[in-house]
């Protein structure tokens, strides 16, 4: 299950999307999500899907890899569909036993599914095409203005990148400790929930102890290498906007204008509402 979630994984290949400045990608995702939730008619969603397809095509990431990420949220999608389908009031479409499915419910369920899928695909594509380090750099630089409000952006970014670096090490350590306790006769598979939770104590305690020891060691090593917070640091790989980033910003801008025009313009929305009302009759 955890393996299916593609958010946070990096897919190594060469593409324009990979080379884009992380700030472009982060802002792009944000705008895309805003656009997604502002559409009022099917044409808007069509535009969103088209944009998504274009980005995926450009990214050279196999579609299979991106859709794999959707498996992880299957459960959430199902719940969303059920709730919307059965609990939305309106004109009945089918009704059996005590359950009624309405036209409004159906429309709502379809909308929510499209939104969710696009949302997940949109954020997956960022992490799939950006190394964690690059992403952190992008956040640090992109949120740089927050320093005015005394938010230690640099330190937070450093914390993120260290956390990312230590995840594989701690996973490996968990595996090792679990095996060591298995060798001492521990049992993680049988018994009820309480028993299984209890069985994890011999794993979690050493894991925490080790994590703290590592944190202490690392802090000392960082101090020894003169780390003293975000200010006054220079960058080995500073983020510099290139021409392609400018182009990307223009495309994003065009996408947003189109989104507002097509997805929210009253004439188009009214047109679709009319069709909808005709179906209802």
């Amino acid at each position: 299950m955890i393996r299916d979630i593609t958010i946070g994984q990096y897919y190594q290949t060469k593409s324009v999307i990979h080379r884009l400045d992380p700030r472009v990608k982060l802002l792009g995702t944000l705008l895309f999500i805003i656009a997604l939730f502002s559409y009022k008619n099917p044409l808007g969603y069509a535009l969103g899907i088209a944009f998504m397809c274009m980005v995926i095509k450009l990214s050279h990431v196999p579609v299979k890899f991106i859709t794999k990420g959707l498996k992880g949220i299957m459960m959430i999608m199902c719940i969303t569909v059920v709730i919307n389908l059965f609990l939305t009031a309106g004109t009945p479409l089918i009704s059996f036993w005590k359950i009624t499915i309405t036209y409004e419910g159906l429309a709502m369920a379809v909308t929510m599914i499209i939104r969710l899928i696009l949302l997940i695909m949109g954020s997956s594509i960022v992490t799939l095409t950006t190394t964690p380090n690059n992403l952190t750099d992008g956040l640090e630089k992109g949120l740089g203005f927050m320093k005015v409000f005394h938010v230690p952006v640099g330190d937070v970014a450093m914390m993120m990148s260290i956390a990312l670096r230590f995840i594989p090490i701690l996973l490996e350590e968990t595996d090792r400790i679990m095996k060591a306790q298995l060798a001492r006769g521990a049992d993680f598979e049988n018994g009820n929930l309480v028993k299984r939770a209890k069985a994890l104590v011999p794993v979690l305690v050493p894991l925490f102890v080790s994590a703290f020891r590592r944190a202490g060691d690392l802090a000392m090593a960082m101090e020894a290498r003169c780390y003293r917070g975000g200010d006054g640091r220079t960058k080995m790989k500073p983020l510099v906007y290139k021409k392609r980033d400018a182009v990307a910003y223009i495309i994003l801008f065009a996408f947003m204008v189109l989104s507002i025009f097509l997805g929210r313009w009253s004439v188009i929305t009214g047109f679709f509402n009319n069709i909808y009302l005709n179906i209802l009759k």
């Binding site: 380090n133 690392l218 003169c226 220079t234 080995m236």
Partner: peptide, 22 residues
């Protein structure tokens, strides 16, 4: 394992100089 900060070898080596403002 507890003293390498970077996720790429060269970035780790660059960590010290970055801190010194080189």
């Amino acid at each position: 394992d507890n003293q390498i900060i970077g996720q790429v070898v060269e970035e780790d080596v660059g960590f010290g100089p970055e801190n010194l403002g080189v």
